[in-house]
């Protein structure tokens, strides 16, 4: 018997850690990983509410989030490789122009 709210507080904590990692990290790959952490936190909230309301649709939503996250990771990492090829750095402070 676990209160549902504990799961939601865990999800909020993971999301907040993801946001602060997004703000503090200077490496573009670490920033991308903190976005994945935030997506996971939201997924946990979805699964928790699916359990609470006894609905399958919450889990379907998580399934679609996973699919989109996989597509996003593939494209995002390809963009990171392209950025690294043209500038030889992954520090976001030095990547401040769209055009080289």
């Amino acid at each position: 018997m676990i209160p549902i709210s504990w799961y939601l507080v865990l999800s909020a904590a993971l999301f907040s850690i993801g946001v602060s990692a997004f703000l503090i990290k200077r490496n573009i790959i670490s920033i991308f990983m903190s976005i994945e952490l935030m997506l996971n936190a939201v997924n946990l909230a979805f699964v928790t509410f699916a359990h609470h309301w006894h609905q399958v649709s919450g889990q379907i939503f998580v399934f679609f989030v996973m699919v989109v996250a996989a597509a996003e990771a593939a494209v995002g990492l390809a963009i990171i490789i392209a950025v690294f090829r043209s500038r030889d750095t992954l520090n976001v402070d030095q990547i401040n122009l769209m055009k080289l």
């Binding site: 209160p3 709210s5 507080v9 909020a12 999301f15 907040s16 946001v19 602060s20 503090i24």
Partner: peptide, 26 residues
């Protein structure tokens, strides 16, 4: 950012914990 994140977490956690009775348990 950091105070904002802490405020966000505090608000969310207080809302969820105040709803503990209504949400029930798993």
């Amino acid at each position: 950012g950091i105070p904002g994140v802490l405020a966000l977490f505090a608000i969310l956690a207080s809302i969820f914990l105040s709803l503990t009775k209504n949400l029930g348990s798993a």
